[in-house]
Each structure stands twice: as structure tokens, then as C-alpha cells.
Nucleic acid binder design. Structure first.
Lengths: 222, 222
DNA sequence: GCAAAAGTGTTACTAGTACACCCATGC
DNA sequence: GCATGGGTGTACTAGTAACACTTTTGC
């Protein structure tokens, strides 16, 4: 091996799959690629990793620099080391998963100068490089994470309604729940409390607003 | 970045955490390190990844070359990119998880010339480099995987007894099960069938031997 | 007043838990 | 015959699933 070191050296990049929930839809952050290759395609936030930092530190730094986003908790998803994934040079990818509230998501996209957008995961645009595949891997993990009350707390820091949560669960688990049974089960977990406010924005009878209690968490909600 | 490419190039190594179950104990494969650094310590099977292969291909190749082990299904666990983890050179690690039956495990260690041994995960020796941490990460994932009937099938390709399976579950889940309830639940899953044979090796009344049915699987057994 | 969506309670069924005795083997 | 560990059934409890009508709002 030592005789052919150059055959073993690669660049490494960290890639972020950032999710939020807006109007009951799960959305992911993408950036418009302004240069060739894949000009006009959309890609995930990415940065090279220097030998003086970990992959996690690199992507955290990138999100701070590009989006002024701090205190974002990330989790490793998977790697991609297909030799020709970046065509010319060998680059290995390590991908990360993170969640934020819709308010944070909005702030993030309005404060930056380059073109970036939150896409519904069911209505994705043309995706550059192998980011489609990386997104796919992250989406697998996404489902597990959304069943963790700590993650829900990050996505819904302020008030939320039960029908809202129910819709997300039906979307990620791919099945319908009875409204009464869902409500009964969710409330019986003891994670949330009534705010005595109502969501007056929708059509029909206003839904009660709840908030998560502090210091309570459940890993597997369903 | 392009001006300082050498600050971004790393070696990459693939590391295998191979598990088996022997006498109701979960064991992991380690190799004795014969040279400095960490001479006399034990380490996980490791290989460098060339730029012409994926990390998965590299570790598969290594296990074939060193242990003549083919058809082993591996799964990615995590990465470690701490800059000084290998002291002198920047090396990033990608770790993989795999399972085999006790027969395969025995064959593997007897057919090789270098020193290698299966260690009970609760009685590990001195471990070199950061392989202790890598093992720890794999062990987290291990618990999930042992609840997957497809993995159990790999570990117990031939006959097994229910008390045997029960012991493993109690070990990984950290709680005791009632023998009758465990039996009732496991059999009701419809995964296994009676072989009409008995395990005459233990003390006490011989236990019935079962086998997994083909084409049936359950992801979350408990 | 009508359409749209949310809130509510009861019953039946299913799955999980607790528990005690007998059985087959080796020594 | 006794120590060791395995096999079996039943009653109780908790969780899940099925189900229909009333309430509040905007238009």
C-alpha cells in the first residue's frame, strides 16, 4: 500500500439533509447549483472536510458560515464512496440529518443571498450529483426520527394541533389513524399540555393548540 | 480550498465488527496486533480503501483475502474522522457490521495463520486505537439487528432451542422474560417450525429444536 | 344554513402479563 | 430419587381498533 499512497487518498465532503415541517408537509433544504456540472439542478448543502476537523465539525461550520445557523443538532446518516461519484476526482461523502421549526426554516432561506428553497419531499426538483440517493438514505432514517418526541419538540417548539401531528404520522407511516384513538393515545403519553388557545387559521372548527412539556420524552411514539 | 489540496486528502479505512453467538453469548472477532503501535492489543479487522473501490468493497475484499469468507452481508454503522485518531496520518474510518453462525465463526478462526479470537462482548481484552469506540457504536446497532428475524436466521441457520433465543433477548434487552409468555409470543409469530428433534447436550429435560421457516420475516421481534 | 374540520365516549377485541405444576434427562 | 432445566394452560389486565354524532367556525 505504502508504495502507492496516491491511490488511497481521497477528498471527503460532508452533506446536510435538513428537514422541516410546513403546513403538514415534510420539506428538505436544497440549493440551486449555479455552475457546471449540474448547472440549474438542485443540491444539498455540502462542504469539503479538512484534515484538521471531523466531518461533523465541517458541516456544522458550513451551516454556520452559509446560513448563520447555530445550535443545530445533526446526526450521521450514511456514507457514499463510489469511486466515480464526482466523475473526475475521488470524493467520499458523509451525510448528516437535522431538523428545525418552520420559523427557523423561513429565517434561514430569507437571510441568504444565493438561491435556496425548501422542497416538499414528494415534489423534488432535478437533483444534481448523487444527492438524490443520499436524500433517499436520509429519508429512511427520517421516519424513525420523527417518532422521537425530542425531534418533534424541535420541529414544533411552540403551539401545534393534534390533527397536524396526526397528518405527519399518517404521512410517514403510510396509514390512516382514527382521530379519536390517535388523540387518546397521544394525550395518554403525557408529553403535551393544553395551551387554552385555538388555531383560528384553518377552515372549519378551530383546533386546540398544545405544547410539549419540558423534561419528558419518548423514543418510539408508534 | 483548491490551493491547499493536501490539507483535504485523507486515507480511508474500512473496519469490520463481526458477531456470532456461541453458547448464548454474543461474541466479536478481534485480531492480535503484532506490531507497534498497540503491540499485544487486540483490534478489529481493518483495511485501507483504494480510490478504485467503495468502502464496502474494500472490507468485503479484506475478509475474503484474510479469512476466505464470502457471501457475508455487511451493513454500514458509522464513521470516525477525528483528525488525530491514527496519530501521525489523517485516516478516516468507516465501520461495518456483520453476523455469522457459530460454525462459520469456528471455521473462520481455525483456517487462518495469524492470531485471532472471538471475545464475549462483556469480556473484552485491551483494544487498540479507537476500536473500542467503534465497537461501542456497532453494539448499539447490534441490538436492533438481533430483533430482525433475518439476522437470527443467519446466526441460527440450523436447529436452535427457544430457551437459547430467549437468553439472547434477555441479554440484549436487559430484562427477563417469562418462559411461557416468551414461547407463546415467539411461536405465534409463525416464523419457526418444529424439527421433531431435541437438544440432548444440556443438563435437565432436553429442549425442542426449531428451525426458521423460509420466506417469512419480521423486522421488530420485540 | 351549509360545508369543512375538530372534539368527544363506549364497546369489542387483541396482545401482554402474571402465575404453578408437571415432565424428561443425567448422575 | 433428586437436581436441573424445559414444556404447558388459564385468568387477568392493558392497549388497540372500530364506530357516529355533536360543535365551532367561515362563507
Amino acid at each position: 500500500m505504502k508504495n502507492h499512497t496516491k491511490d488511497y487518498l481521497r477528498l471527503i465532503e460532508s452533506i446536510a439533509c435538513l428537514y422541516t415541517i410546513d403546513q403538514g408537509c415534510i420539506k428538505v433544504l436544497l440549493l440551486k447549483q449555479e455552475e457546471e456540472p449540474y448547472k440549474g439542478y438542485w443540491v444539498l448543502p455540502t462542504t469539503y472536510v479538512s484534515i484538521h476537523e471531523t466531518c461533523m465539525e465541517a458541516i456544522t461550520r458550513e451551516l454556520e458560515e452559509k446560513f448563520h445557523f447555530t445550535d443545530l443538532e445533526l446526526e450521521e446518516v450514511s456514507t457514499c464512496s463510489t469511486p466515480d461519484r464526482m466523475l473526475d476526482v475521488p470524493v467520499m461523502a458523509v451525510s448528516y440529518l437535522g431538523f428545525m421549526s418552520d420559523l427557523e426554516a423561513l429565517k434561514l432561506t430569507t437571510e441568504v443571498s444565493f438561491e435556496t428553497k425548501w422542497f416538499d419531499i414528494h415534489e423534488l426538483p432535478k437533483i444534481g450529483y448523487d444527492h438524490q440517493e443520499i436524500l433517499q438514505n436520509a429519508m429512511e432514517k427520517l421516519k424513525d426520527k420523527l417518532l422521537d418526541s425530542e425531534v418533534l419538540k424541535k420541529i414544533f417548539p411552540s403551539d401545534f394541533t393534534l390533527p397536524e401531528i396526526q397528518k405527519i404520522y399518517e404521512s410517514i407511516l403510510g396509514r390512516k389513524f382514527d382521530r379519536r384513538n390517535f388523540r387518546k393515545k397521544f394525550i395518554s403519553l403525557g408529553l403535551i399540555e393544553d395551551t387554552n388557545d385555538y388555531d383560528m387559521n384553518g377552515v372549519g372548527r378551530p383546533a386546540k393548540l398544545y405544547r410539549f412539556k419540558e423534561h419528558v420524552s419518548v423514543k418510539k411514539l408508534f
